[in-house]
Simulated scan of single mutants.
Amino acid sequence: MTPTHRFVDTNGIRLHIAEWGSGYPVIFCHGFPHGWFIWHRQLATIGAAGYHAIAPDLRGYGRTEAPDGVDAHTNVAVIGDLLGLLDALGADRAVFVGLDFGAQLVWELALRAPDRVAGVIVANNPYSPRAPKPPSSYWTKAAERHFLHLSYFQEPGVADAELAARPREFLANVYYALSADYHYLDTWQNPPGLGYLDVLPKAPALPWNWLTVSEFDYLATEFERTGFTGGLAWYRALDRNWELSADLPATVTVPVHFLYGENDPDMAGFSGRDPLAVMRAHLADLRAVEKVTGAGHLVQLERTGAVNDFLLAAVADLVGPPVAAPSA
């Protein structure tokens, strides 16, 4: 069995979604460089359990439209897409699952529209309140000392051209570098002024023990078709996101389940000295925290069984068991 696909008109764009099952909606939000397919193993599990599992290609990715400009790729814009998706589904609320940029997105969604969020399940990217200065003020200083992708991605056209010229090599190398099989922060040993492909490790040949050739081919084919500009626009909107979040509350009030890979580089290098303590201090209803051993950033692929078990328990906690048992 495979998910079904359709398009939803929302917030001025045409949004592609993959979905599986029926029942209470559970919406999966991906990061960079991903797409809906990064969640396909979870769609199968959640859909088969009796829920309505939905994974959009977020704006700028895959078969969803990619408007021009920084303001078109802010969290505010994408939250508008998700709220329109809820309306199209005829749903008052949903459980939202996020990883990477998708995690940042659902954290902000929970602050902006808590009445539409039954709960959030986040992988690897812990919540922290708004920083006192825009993000670029932090990464610009770091990028003076060593290569840092956050800075490298800011100049329009530069990373776009590099990555689009060698999409399969980039994707294989970055997925490998972010996994538990490599220490991603070793890329910081390279000086500034290099390209991303200059600093990433050479990935071993596929298949890997957590990613098949056919899965990689699906992801790579999508980016061969679209390029990476839509995804890179999310990086270029980071300072704008900071500007637009000035009036948001500091505390997330919706129920939260959080899991993270034991070797996730975001937890180790991009989330402060004690990210779990900061997160706990700003969540009103944190119900679970779980460390997944032997996993890095793409935890849902590297340790699919553990993540799926966590998701099933979390969704049941947030909205109860499915109304009806799935058909055989």
Rank of each mutant, 00 (worst) to 15 (best):
P114M: 07
Y235D: 07
S137E: 15
F170I: 03
L211G: 02
T229F: 04
F96R: 10
A328L: 12
A91K: 05
G84Q: 04
E155Q: 13
L109H: 02
D274M: 08
R280E: 12
K202W: 00
A180G: 13
T10V: 15
Y182H: 11
Q42E: 11
T229D: 10
D100Y: 04
V70S: 01
P134W: 06
A288E: 12
Y182I: 07
P156Y: 00
T293S: 13
T253I: 15
R41I: 08
R168W: 02
W188P: 03
S128K: 12
V252R: 09
G231R: 10
T251K: 10
R63H: 06
T74W: 08
D87F: 05
L197Q: 07
F170K: 04
S151Y: 08
G23H: 01
W139A: 08
D81P: 09
F228H: 09
R166N: 10
V213Y: 06
D239S: 01
A94I: 05
A324K: 10
G12Y: 01
A66M: 02
A165Q: 05
P167N: 08
A233W: 05
F7C: 09
P134S: 02
F258G: 15
E222S: 13
V76W: 03
Y218R: 12
T226K: 13
P201I: 10
I27Y: 05
D266P: 07
I38L: 12
D92S: 11
L105A: 08
D309Y: 03
T229P: 01
I121S: 04
P33C: 04
P3I: 13
R273Y: 00
L248V: 03
A55K: 11
T10E: 03
N241E: 04
F223R: 14
L185E: 14
Q189D: 12
V106K: 10
W36T: 14
S136R: 05
D100T: 02
Y218M: 06
G102F: 11
A203F: 08
H257C: 12
D92V: 14
R166L: 07
P132S: 08
T293R: 14
P322E: 02
A324Y: 01
S22M: 11
V213F: 04
G60K: 11
L163P: 04
S136P: 03
M279V: 11
G31D: 01
F32D: 00
S245N: 15
D285T: 12
L301W: 12
F147K: 09
A306Q: 13
S128N: 06
L219T: 14
L301R: 10
V199K: 08
V319T: 14
E108H: 15
D309T: 15
A288I: 02
A313R: 15
R145M: 13
P275Q: 04
L15F: 05
D274P: 03
R236V: 11
V307D: 00
G23P: 02
F147H: 10
V213H: 04
G21Y: 08
A295L: 05
H146R: 14
D81Y: 04
R41W: 03
L206D: 01
T187P: 02
V174C: 05
D181N: 07
A118H: 03
L99E: 09
A49N: 05
A180P: 04
T212Q: 02
V319Q: 09
A180I: 12
A118L: 01
T4L: 14
A172S: 10
A123E: 10
V252H: 07
A284H: 10
Y184M: 14
D239K: 02
H5L: 10
Y260D: 15
W20K: 09
A123Y: 14
V158L: 13
S128V: 13
